[in-house]
Simulated assay, not measured.
Amino acid sequence: MLTIHGVPLSVHTRKAIVTAILKKVDYRFEVVIPVIPGNPPANWSTLSPTGLIPVLQDGDFTLADSTAICLYLDRKQPAPPIFPEDIRDYGRVLWFDAYAGGTIFRHVVHPLFVQTIVGPNIRNVPTDRAVIDDVLTNVQPKILGYLESQIAGKYLVGDTMTLADIAIVSNFIVYQYLGFEIDASRYPKLAGYLREIAATAVFQRALADERPFVDQMGLKRGFLSAA
């Protein structure tokens, strides 16, 4: 059985978990809580050369990085695929996965998470409201507007769930956990898309498994009632 190491709230950990659930790959989840305050387990540098989560262990094989893990799982259990056969659609899935990690997470989700959770609750540093305001006012609109323009159906690419959906929606789950909302009047397609994907069985199982951790941190789950 596979082991996935990470934190339930993590965008990247959830990406690996949802992929495993979608493919019906048996796995156990190992919570690596010490990673958050920067006090990892003694063997963490061996498991994760970067010190980041998630990490997958499959027997004596260890792999870090969420995208690498998802690609590995896709080869280990090909059905259902998380990449389409069409070469252009394949490229678009890779692009959205990169956009999720390199743009949405880096420039929106991560700074908001640091200012609302990590700073005040872990590092004892007051929230810098100016950072939050800058993200919401100057950074976020371009990203949300772009995503709104890319949605033409239930899924971002093709007619089945792909890594593009898993990566994008995993980010916005955390975004909404923090109490931020997508303005449905301004971004109706994006709001509907996120709601529908979050309501799928694979996401619902992952979100149910992480609920104790979310409740413990006092995060918002009201948005899921509409999913």
Rank of each mutant, 00 (worst) to 15 (best):
I4C: 11
V7P: 03
L9D: 01
V11E: 07
A16D: 02
T19C: 10
V25K: 06
Y27W: 04
I33P: 07
I33S: 13
I33Q: 14
P34K: 11
P34N: 03
P34C: 13
P37W: 11
G38D: 03
G38Q: 08
P40F: 12
P40W: 03
S45G: 10
T46Q: 07
L47H: 04
P49S: 12
L52D: 15
L52V: 07
D58W: 08
L63W: 02
I69H: 09
C70P: 00
L71D: 10
P78S: 13
P78C: 09
A79C: 10
P81T: 15
P81S: 15
P84Y: 00
P84M: 00
A100M: 12
R106V: 05
V108E: 05
V108Y: 12
P111A: 09
G119P: 06
N121H: 13
I122A: 11
R123W: 05
R123A: 03
R123Y: 04
D128M: 10
D128N: 15
R129T: 15
V131N: 02
I132R: 02
N138F: 12
V139T: 13
V139N: 09
L144N: 05
E148V: 01
L156T: 01
T160Q: 10
T162K: 01
A164T: 09
A164V: 14
D165G: 00
I166H: 00
I166S: 00
F172V: 06
F172S: 08
F172K: 05
V174G: 02
Y175E: 00
Y175L: 03
Y177E: 09
G179Y: 11
E181N: 01
D183L: 12
A184S: 03
R186V: 11
R186S: 14
Y187H: 09
L190G: 01
A191E: 09
Y193G: 08
L194D: 00
R195C: 07
E196C: 11
I197H: 06
A198M: 15
A199Y: 13
A201S: 13
A201N: 06
A201R: 10
F203W: 04
D209S: 06
D209A: 07
D209R: 02
D215C: 13
G218W: 14
K220G: 10
F223K: 04
A226P: 14
